[in-house]
Nucleic acid binder design. Structure first.
Length: 757
DNA sequence: TAATGTAGAGTTTTT
DNA sequence: CTCTACATTA
């Protein structure tokens, strides 16, 4: 087939394998995603019904991109019936279909981590346990890891090593919390993320009918990022693939960096043991990076014991050596990088999006940001609080959740008194207690507090009643209206819109905008569904939204900016120039990892991932001192620097290059130093727009009065455009604007910032 | 019930 | 240092 011509031999062989188990070990930058998409296209072109193909990825984004590519190769019609998604989204879908078999409503709520922790707190209170001993986060992790290993609460209580561990840390009651947690979830009609996989396992284990149904449906299974799967996920795969064994997994053991959340590197290391007939394909040619980068990365990873045999190589240029920067402090580290980016930028004229600054912990971003700001280099930080974790978003989704599933206790607690309705903490506590004692859901008590002997005064009872009536009225709304209309109505009638609209602080403003953004997303959803002839009701939206994350939203307005992110967040990405920062003992590798060989190997893989993000040149830096929680601490260079063979390193600012680490107290002058803040070491860039990126006020819109028909305007996301039409009065003035290359947009001027040019 | 003050904790993160 | 969560006060 001619479409395979663009592949190399190894890639081609991997694509052409059809039947039986296979493992594709894909080195960094070896065209893994390409192989996977080609392979699916190849299967389809060989007459395999896309309806019988299941493809699992780690993010929704990856799934969407892959589906798009396949659809352009085999046609949209064919691609449509493919099942492609994350483990969680695919199996949530199946659980909704089979909900009766597992005793859940089809509209079950998916609790996120915050919901789960809050539920655990409630349980702790119930059991009179000290939240300082039984830290909710820790308890959650214990339960989560049990579930990832398919241990039920009873299994947990019976497992001697777990019991021993909990006894040792004097938290013997975790199994009891686990038990209560599960029964509360069941009563709330909710599952946490791990339950989606756990219950799928139960379904496939206990219901032969479902097992056969899905075994026969998914005759071909493909899994991306297999090195990051956990036991629970692999067990699902084994069950589904048991009949045909047409399972292809793709991954790179050297890039397994999620053990801390349950990923089991043994899944990939021992794949051959599970499937002795598995064919092994190795993708070893790197198309991304220079020889120096590839070889330096190889020298790092070779220090790990546990790994699959492979040799990553490249035909690319030799390139430059990895530059090592040593600075006196974390601030100077930032300055050194900002300086280097500025210098490089003058030299190469590349966009700022060609640069990435990576770090081990989010806390490091501050000093780096500061330096970039001082140098007028635009940047964008990834990570931090995600869109769906924002309070205002959770508030609105909370109303949606209660409307769909009145048993969703966490959602009720979130919205019952926000906006304030005079239903206070004590009242809620009383009702929660009554619900627990009577073994009913909170909603039951809420709708009939007197019947459950909750002692409340008259006004409070009527306040509660009007809240319940509000929710009931929403139920009628979502029956009749489209997802978007329902969302609008709920946002308005709940009082949320008004609440955030009347908050004129910068924070309140951005909250209001976020709510509008969610509603805009809802509108987009409604339109898409209509276009595809699919159901367009609020529940359909909610089924998708619980498993979405920020990374799923495309941010096309973020070009021209340097990227700052954790190394974890950078996995799968590539940049021409990469700066890996904070190469210091106890930071990278992290302090918590240095006592265990396995943890240390994971940190080393993380370092490997960091270096292999670079296409043209990688930089690593370390500081001799660093502020940690307000205290100055002295740092030692990371052992990982020594893991790179000397021949691949360059110390542009050190006089002595033969010896790596002198005692820094002896030769402080060899480190990079920078003039004081007032005295910049270079003239500021002239043609750079002054962008202070992260601040919400960065883009100033013109007052609504100035937006009139015919004027040229600029929008932060859509760029330049012309106002075609204006309707309505301030504050509800609406403009129709034509943006070059984008098309017409209708914008409400109270949220869309338009600048008159 | 709402607002204000204080103690304590603070890898990595998608679902 | 900085944010969050809880407790105390008005």
């Amino acid at each position: 087939m001619e479409f395979l011509e663009s592949l190399n031999e190894a890639q081609k062989k991997a694509v052409e394998h059809i039947n039986g188990p296979a493992i594709i070990i894909a080195g960094a930058g070896s065209g893994k995603t390409r192989v996977l998409t080609f392979k699916i296209a190849y299967l389809i072109k060989n007459g395999i019904d896309p309806f019988n193909i299941l493809s699992l990825t780690f993010t929704n984004k990856a799934a969407r991109e892959m589906k798009q590519r396949i659809s352009s190769s085999v046609g949209e019609q064919q691609a449509k019936s493919l099942w492609m998604g994350t483990f969680h989204s695919v199996f949530a879908k199946i659980l909704r279909i089979e909900h009766q078999k597992i005793g859940f409503p089809s509209n079950f709520t998916i609790y996120d981590t915050d919901d789960s922790k809050s539920l655990i707190k409630t349980i702790l209170k119930d059991m009179n346990l000290d939240a300082k001993v039984y830290k909710p986060g820790l308890v959650y992790n214990r339960i989560s890891s049990a579930k990832n290993n398919l241990l039920s609460a009873n299994d947990y209580a019976k497992n001697s090593s777990i019991v021993a561990e909990d006894t040792r840390s004097s938290k013997p009651l975790i199994y009891e919390i686990y038990k209560k947690y599960q029964s509360k979830l069941l009563r709330a009609g909710a599952m946490d993320f791990d339950d989606l996989l756990f219950r799928t396992n139960e379904l496939l284990r206990d219901d032969p009918q479902s097992l056969h149904k899905y075994q026969n449906k998914f005759k071909y299974i493909l899994v991306d990022e297999f090195q990051d799967t956990n036991f629970s996920q692999f067990t699902i795969l084994k069950r589904l693939a048991a009949l045909f064994e047409n399972i292809t997994v793709v991954g790179d053991d050297a890039q397994s960096i999620y053990a801390f959340r349950g990923a089991n590197i043994q899944n990939i290391l021992n794949f051959k043991k599970t499937y002795p007939d598995a064919e092994i394909f190795r993708l070893e040619q790197n198309y991304r990076s220079t020889k120096n980068i590839v070889n330096a990365a190889n020298s790092v990873i070779s220090k790990n014991k546990e790994q699959l045999k492979k040799t990553v190589w490249t035909q690319n240029d030799e390139g430059e050596k990895i530059r090592v920067f040593r600075t006196n402090s974390d601030q100077e580290e930032g300055m050194a990088i900002a300086n280097e980016i500025f210098r490089l930028n003058n030299e190469t004229h590349l966009d700022f999006e060609s640069y990435a600054i990576l770090y081990r912990t989010n806390a490091q971003s501050r000093a780096l940001e500061e330096a970039l700001r001082k140098s007028d280099i635009p940047y964008r930080i990834y990570g931090g609080l995600s869109f769906y974790q924002r309070k205002e978003i959770k508030d609105l989704l909370g109303y949606f959740r209660v409307t769909l599933n009145p048993n969703d206790e966490e959602a009720i607690k979130r919205v019952i008194n926000f906006p304030v309705r005079g239903i206070g903490k004590t009242t809620i506590d009383k009702m929660v207690l009554a619900a627990t004692e009577n073994e009913v859901g909170l909603w039951e008590v809420l709708t009939d507090p007197v019947n459950y002997n909750v002692k409340l005064n008259g006004p409070t009872i009527s306040k509660i009643k009007s809240f319940a009536d509000l929710i009931k009225s929403f139920r009628i709304v979502i029956e009749k209206d489209t997802a978007y209309d329902s969302g609008q109505k709920i946002a308005a009638s709940s009082g949320l819109l008004k609440e955030y609209y009347s908050d004129k602080s910068a924070e309140g403003l951005s909250r209001y905008e976020n709510i509008q953004e969610l509603l805009a997303g809802l509108k987009e959803f409604s339109e898409d569904q209509k276009e595809q002839g699919l159901a367009d009701k609020l529940p359909d939206f909610m089924n998708e939204v619980a498993l979405l994350s920020d990374q799923d939203s495309s941010d096309d307005d973020e070009k021209e900016k340097v990227t700052l992110m954790t190394i974890h967040a950078a996995k799968g990405l590539e940049f021409p120039y990469v700066f890996v920062t904070g190469l210091e003992e106890n930071l990278f590798p992290s302090q918590l990892s240095i006592n265990s060989r396995a943890d240390l190997e994971e940190e080393r893989r993380l370092f490997y991932v960091a270096i292999t993000r670079a296409e043209k040149r990688a930089h690593i830096s370390y500081a001799l001192t660093r502020f940690k929680w307000g205290n100055l601490i002295y740092c030692e260079p990371s052992r990982f620097i020594e893991d790179i063979e000397e021949e691949f390193l360059d110390y542009p600012y050190l006089e002595t290059q033969t010896k790596k680490f002198q005692d820094f107290t002896l030769k402080p002058k060899q480190t990079l130093t920078f003039p004081s803040k007032t005295n910049k070491p270079y003239s500021p860039p002239r043609n750079l727009k002054k962008l202070s990126n992260t601040s919400p006020q960065a883009f100033e819109g013109s007052p609504a009065e100035e937006i009139i028909t015919g004027v040229e305007v600029e929008h932060q996301r859509f760029g330049k455009g012309k106002v075609l039409q204006v309707e309505g009065q301030i504050p509800n003035k609406k403009a129709t604007v034509f943006f070059q290359g984008i098309g017409q947009k209708q914008l409400l001027l109270k949220f869309a910032k338009l600048k008159v040019l």
